[in-house]
């Protein structure tokens, strides 16, 4: 079974991002970039499926500028077999990414597509679902457990009320939640080996996709700041303040 995994290059989750002073965009010059944490979980899941003998080949795809190759190489070091880089300097919105992925799904015919449920920059939580619509494939979103058997995949999903399990016919799309697995670290020899794995370079135009943005960001600003609070000395003072000052209990 062939598995296609999508990974996104994003600002590292430890970086506290701030708007630029003129509010035109976020200030992310020279900050650390990484694989989106949810995408890392997607790569790990694919590698585990390969280790279990369920997956035979893992193709990793990333979209964006030249530097996305770093994230593709990281995924190759973690165990993906080959890479596809959809290279463009254009702004890619989730619909455009889903369209490019859909073209690659048509070309590669994977049995399973695994991707993160959201990227921690845009926090959109859209791309997997949109790929589902465009390809007509079923979706198992926010997955905390994935089991492939008998031409189907059972996906346990983290939903507001608890957990829900759905059964999807293959091929299918899975988007990962945080508790699906704990990603491994790449070992040095694997990082060296990853350098020799093949990475194909294509453009959105090659895939026949118009990536023109549909939404425009007019402004970015910091969220409303909270007023500095106080430290209370003990529980009695806390209860007194909550009763008489804040009047919330």
């Amino acid at each position: 079974m062939k598995v296609l995994v999508a990974v996104k290059r994003v600002v590292d989750y430890n970086v506290k991002v701030r708007p630029k002073a003129d509010g035109s965009d976020v200030d992310i010059a020279n900050v650390k970039m990484s694989i989106n944490p949810f995408c890392e979980i997607a790569v790990e899941e694919a590698v585990r499926l390969k280790e279990k003998g369920v997956a035979s080949e893992i193709v990793v795809v990333s979209m964006g500028p030249k530097q996305c190759q770093e994230q593709i190489r990281t995924a190759l070091a973690l165990g993906a077999d080959r890479g596809i880089h959809v290279e463009t300097d254009a702004e890619l919105q989730p619909l455009a990414v889903a369209k490019c992925l859909n073209a690659l799904v048509a070309k590669e015919s994977p049995e399973l597509v695994i991707m993160g449920k959201q990227s921690i920059d845009g926090d959109n939580n859209q791309t997997g679902q949109m790929l589902g619509a465009l390809s007509g494939l079923p979706q198992g979103t926010f997955a905390s457990e994935v089991n492939v058997a008998d031409g189907k995949v059972a996906v346990t999903r983290e939903v507001d009320g608890g957990l829900q399990t759905v059964s999807l016919s293959l091929p299918a799309i899975v988007t990962t939640d945080l508790r699906l697995n704990e990603p491994r670290y790449a070992k040095l020899p694997d990082i060296m080996k990853a350098k020799r794995k093949p990475v194909e370079n294509v453009s959105p135009e090659d895939l026949g996709v118009d990536v023109a943005p549909r939404t425009k960001t007019l402004k970015v600003e910091p969220p409303a700041q909270r007023q500095a609070g106080i430290k209370v000395s003990d529980v009695s003072e806390l209860v007194e303040k909550l009763k008489n000052e804040a009047k919330v209990i």
Binding site: R214, T217, L218, K219, P222, P223
Partner: peptide, 13 residues
């Protein structure tokens, strides 16, 4: 966006 560290004003076409 960015875990609520930034609020974006977005216009849809």
């Amino acid at each position: 966006v960015y875990a609520g560290n930034v609020i974006a004003t977005v216009q849809s076409a």
